[in-house]
Amino acid sequence: MKTLIFKRLVQLVGVIWGVGTLTFVLMRSLPGDMAYRIAASRYGQDNVDSQAAALVREELQLDQGALSAYKDWLLDLLQFRLGDSLVSGEPVIETVQHMLGHSLLLSFAGLALSIAIAVPIGLLSASKGKMVDSALMGFSSLIRAMPVFVIGVLLLLLFALHWNWFPVAGFGTPAHLVLPALTLGLSLAAVSNRVVRDSAKRVFGSSFYLFSRVKGLSKWTTFKRHGIRNIAVPVVAFLGIQLVSMIEGIVMIESLFSWPGIGHGLAHAIFARDIPVIQGAALVMGILFVFLNTLVDLLCHWIDPRGVAES
């Protein structure tokens, strides 16, 4: 347990340094002049010219060498200062917080929906006959074969345009959350329902489960006592694996639905070359990822204390 947390802490420090340095190097090697790109984002396409770029260059001291900029950044990072956005001048930490809140909301809603979809379907295909099983598995394979944005586009066409039940894009009300979260939930559920099914099949077919039924416990009691926990372990562990595809899905979904989260912000900051925001966003994503992975580890440990030696 302690070693687990220690290991994760070491990973965290490595991630912070590594992600920061990687983004720094990548962004420094982007083509074109940084001052011009920042000027374009600041002043808009109609008003960007070489004068604006010169102003930006002077204000932000973009002429300083890469090494000294890197040193400054590292020193700031040690004091948890992420700097100000080059474009808006707002503190990065505030920008990232604002984005992170939206992304977390979206990801938790998506995750909750995916569980709500995947668990019943997985259990259904594990417990009913072969026909139901293959039908459900075939359907989830189809969904899995579609990129996230295609699922999003189809949902948009259906729910927002055809029936006009939910708004198309934007944020602010619960109704705005439905379609993005459903897109994320569906794409996650299409994979995790298989894990639920396999796990449930394993448990339902195991000798301890059969024994419990033979000794006279009802179907429901057996499931409650011997089913849930045993099925849950691989499913929860799989959630950890799914985090990556979740975060990738968020980038696409946020772009499609104009959801002001971290993925959307990151894609935008890359376009505008707002290095502090890129670093801040990438860092937060990295930290979040390590944190959630630790959470998954701990959850697995809590459900099944035996497994800890292996991880």
Binding site: G18, V19, L30, P31, A267, M285, V290
Partner: peptide, 23 residues
């Protein structure tokens, strides 16, 4: 181990996005 841990903590699409933006 260290390298992989760092790479794993950055969602792949983000790396691809940044590299694609370079060229």
């Amino acid at each position: 181990g260290v390298l992989v841990n760092i790479l794993l903590a950055l969602p792949g699409l983000v790396i691809v996005l940044m590299l694609a933006a370079i060229a």
